[in-house]
Amino acid sequence: MLLAVCVFLFPEMKGEMDGISDVFASMGSFTAAFGMDRLNFGTLVGFYAIECGNVLGLGGAFYAALCAVGILSKEEKERTAEFLLTHPVSRVKIITEKLIAVLIQITALNLIIYAISVGSMVIIGEEIPWEEINLLHLAYYLLQIELAGICFGISAFLRKGSTGVGLGIAVLMYFMNLVANIAEVAEFLKYITPFGYCEDADIVSNGYLDGTLIAIGLIFGTVGIVAAYWKYTRKDIHSA
């Protein structure tokens, strides 16, 4: 919904954009942190990447992290694990089905968002920049999958509160990218945070996604998932 509102704002703002772009482009470090030095606020792609990219990036990251970090641990936190695990169902099957559930939730959310975004662009009557929009959404989808994989692994180790851990990881990753954008010495952080390959300005100007960063990210996500299987299949389930 927020994305649609942002898109609907575009026609209103379009006329005033030239001035605003100049202002945004002269905000020093902040400009670089959000990639506003390389995006044109006056075009739909630039506007969408800056306005919606941050909402989509952080919001999607929160959603994916929260979905994944709670899914295994909440059975113990809410003490339903004893009910579930005393039935003849293998833990591997439980982990697999819960993982699929997380992936379905994330995929469904992304499809809905994608439909709303494209739909709202059709409504305002602008020409849709398909390639950029598809690449942006794909990058954010991969970011969410990676974060979900990491948080899924963490979920297997937790017994109690998980919300804070999930939000913490999402925020940490987000800020790592901001720091990497501002300080050159911290540029290596781009290899750690999935926000590194979701840099709107890079995607829009390059016209492709950074395969190396994505590959590293997917390895992180996979390690998380493997860790979940390793831990949860041998975890002691306590009574309280």
Binding site: E78, E82, F83, T86, H87, P88, V89, S90
Partner: peptide
């Protein structure tokens, strides 16, 4: 043989907690 064992067992916990 955990699953095969659990197939033959009925367990009544001291405190019953279910999905809300």
């Amino acid at each position: 043989n955990k699953e095969a064992v659990l197939q033959k067992v009925g367990y009544l916990p001291s405190e019953a907690i279910f999905y809300p």
